[in-house]
């Protein structure tokens, strides 16, 4: 019985389809994707929160009123499918739903509720390949819709006699190229880099179309090569001009951590955590946030 199980495990490893190059098995992070064309399906579910967020103090009739404190909550649901067309070419589709809301009265009044749905289609194609490195180009088109419930804006418009609308819905289309790079430093360590730019509509109707950019770097460790434990560890950094934030948010930076279970060979389950800083326009504050998500990825 033991012999059969060991033989099955060996066969599973030999047939593993998780991305591997230069002797290293990679753990591509969702936010720092690699240049690999393997066919896979992915599902991610996550929650994020920004704690102790403060509104700016206001002056009313010469009297300064301190700002209010509250929390922000964000939720994310994502599906992705990539189909390998050739060994050097893959097509990809992704659907994402994200929501951000204040969890208390003061944050609801100040920040409202924002929800977005985005559908992306794209291509990934190899540009350069060596024994230890792999470079791929990408091109993606995203079609999104941003729905906002702005209580403060509604009240201000009502007071000022302007046309009021509590709910605003903004369609947004963006497209652009990117580069993904992977380097197998050793059987234990892999490095992944990515950068992306593009042009498209802003989620803020008052703004013109804009350029956007994002990028990241990650290092992953396949612990099974040293400890026989079927786990992997990934750490990374990412920056994003965050066009989804609309008029209220600027670009953000975040640190990434991934803990992954790496066997059986075709299946990857991971716990991803992020910590970041998001400057909000209009108030003098950097919102510090954290998120946790569970990612399931199956290669076939």
């Amino acid at each position: 019985m033991v012999t059969i199980l060991l033989a099955s495990a060996c066969l599973a490893e030999d047939a593993a389809r998780v991305p591997a190059h230069g002797g290293h098995r990679f753990l591509p992070l969702v936010d720092v994707p690699g240049p690999f064309t393997q066919t896979f399906v992915r599902n991610s579910v996550g929650l994020g929160t920004a704690l102790a967020w403060e509104t700016s103090p206001v002056v009313i009739d010469g009297v300064t009123v301190d700002g209010l404190r509250g929390n922000l909550l964000a939720a994310l649901l994502e599906f992705e499918y990539q189909q390998q067309v050739k060994s050097w070419l893959a097509a990809r589709a992704r659907f994402k739903i994200a929501g951000r809301l204040g969890t208390e009265v003061q944050t609801l009044l100040a920040q409202g509720i924002t929800a977005s749905t985005t559908f992306e289609l794209g291509w990934l194609f190899h540009l350069y390949r060596s024994e230890k490195t792999l470079l791929a180009g990408t091109f993606e088109v995203s079609n999104g819709s941003f729905t906002g419930i702005n209580l403060t804006g509604f009240i201000e418009d009502f007071i000022n006699g302007r046309e009021t609308s509590l709910v605003s819905k903004t369609p947004v289309i963006r497209s652009g190229p990117g580069l993904n790079f992977a380097w197998a430093a050793s059987d234990l360590v892999g490095v992944t880099l990515n950068g992306r730019t593009g042009y498209g509509e802003s989620s803020d109707r008052e703004s013109d179309s804009e350029w956007f950019w994002s990028g990241g770097a990650a290092i992953d460790f396949d612990l099974k090569t040293r400890t026989r434990l079927p786990f992997g560890l990934g750490v990374g950094y990412r920056f994003d001009s965050f066009p989804e934030g609309g008029a209220q948010a600027e670009s953000y930076h975040e640190a990434l951590l991934r803990l992954a279970y790496t066997t059986p060979g075709d299946f990857l389950i991971s716990l991803d955590m992020t910590w970041g800083s998001l400057p909000l326009k209009g108030i003098d504050q950097n919102v510090r946030f954290g998120s946790t998500s569970i990612n399931l990825r199956y290669y076939f």
């Binding site: 289609l121 088109v141 079609n143 369609p171 289309i173 497209s175 498209g200 509509e201 109707r205 179309s209």
Partner: peptide, 28 residues
């Protein structure tokens, strides 16, 4: 073949008037 417009097809979107068009739309 699937086609997604990348540009806003509204040439005069945003003008006020009884026959004004929506601001942002595209072909899909």
């Amino acid at each position: 073949r699937y086609q997604q417009s990348l540009v806003n097809l509204a040439k005069n979107g945003g003008q006020e008037g009884d026959d004004a068009f929506p601001e942002r739309f595209r072909s899909l």
